[in-house]
Amino acid sequence: METAYFIETIIKIVVILLVFSALAGFGTYFERKILAFMQRRLGPMNVGPFGVLQIAADGIKLFTKEDIVPTNAVGPIFKIAPVITAATAFMAAAAIPFLPQFTIFGYTVHPIVADVNIGILYILGVMAVGFYGPLLGSLASSNKFALLSAARAAAVFISYEVITGLALLGPLMMVGSFSLIDFNNYQAGGMGDWIIWSQPVAFVLFWIAAFAETGRTPFHLVANDHEIIDGFGTEYSGMRWGLFFIGEYANMFFISFVIVLLFLGGFGDGSVFGALMFLLKMSFFFFFFLWTRAAWPDIRPDQLMWLCWKVLMPLAVLNVVVTGFVMMF
C-alpha cells in the first residue's frame, strides 16, 4: 500500500508538472491568438499550421538564449527567484482535485496529489509564498525599474491576500471544511447548490483578488511595460525569464480551478459530464483573464490600493458579518 501510494503520487506529480507546463505554453498561444482576434489580427501564423508551433519556437528560443546575470545583481537570489515563482505555483497544485476520482483497470485514481484537510489554506499560503519570486528577483536585479516593481508587488500581494482571505471566510463558514473535495461535495447536488448563489459578493471579491494574485490586466502593474519595462523581469533573460512566465500561466490555470471548485460546483457529482463541465468552467475563467486583457485598461497603483482598502475590504467584512447573521438564524 505504501509503495503503491508512493508510486501513484509520483506519477500524479509528474503528470501535473508535464500537463501544466505544456498548458502554460499553450496558454501563451491562446492568449496571443485571442488577443489578436479581438483586435482584428491573426496572431502567430507562420510557425506550423496556424502558428501552433510558435510555442515550440519560443521554447527553443528561451532555452537557447544566453543566460545573463548582471554584474551588480545578487547572484544566488537573482538565480533562485524565478524558481520560487514556478515552484510555488506547482506546489499549490498539490491540493487541487483536477478531476473527479475514476477507476482504471480496477484501480481507483484520485486526481489530487494530497487531499489534505486544510487544502484551501495550503493553496492560498503557497500562492502567497510565490510573491517572493518577483519580490526577490526585483530586489536582486539591481535595476531601478525592478525596484519599483518590487515595491508594487509587495503592496499588491499584501493587500489582496487580505481580500482573498476575507472573501473566503463566508463560504468556509458555510461548508465547514478547508478541503476542496468537501467544497465540491457540498455543491454536488446540482446547479442550485453552487455557492455562487449564496455567496455572490464573496465570489466577485475572490475573482477580483485572483486578478491581483496572478498579476493580470487590469492589475498588471507589477510589470507594466509602458511604465517600468518588464518590472521584475527586466534583467532576466532566457529560461529564467521563462520560469516567471510559466509560473504566471500555471497560476492562472490553478486559480481558475480553485474558483470553479469554490463557487461553481467543481466537478459536481463526479460523472463524466461533471468532469467535462468542470474543465469547461475552468476554461471560461482562464479565457476571462485573456478577455479582460484585450478589453480593459490597467489601473494605477493608488487606484488599486484605493479599491482594495476602501471598497473591497469593507465589502468583504460586511459579507462575513451578514453570512454569520444568516447562519445564526
Binding site: 482576434f37 479581438m38 483586435q39 480593459w296
Partner: peptide, 22 residues
Amino acid sequence: ELFVGLWVVMREMLKFDIHTVQ
C-alpha cells in the same frame, strides 16, 4: 462601462473580420 469594453472585443472576435495582411 467595463462590460461595454468586454462586449466590444468579444463582438470583434466573433465577427472575425481580420485585417491582417500576411
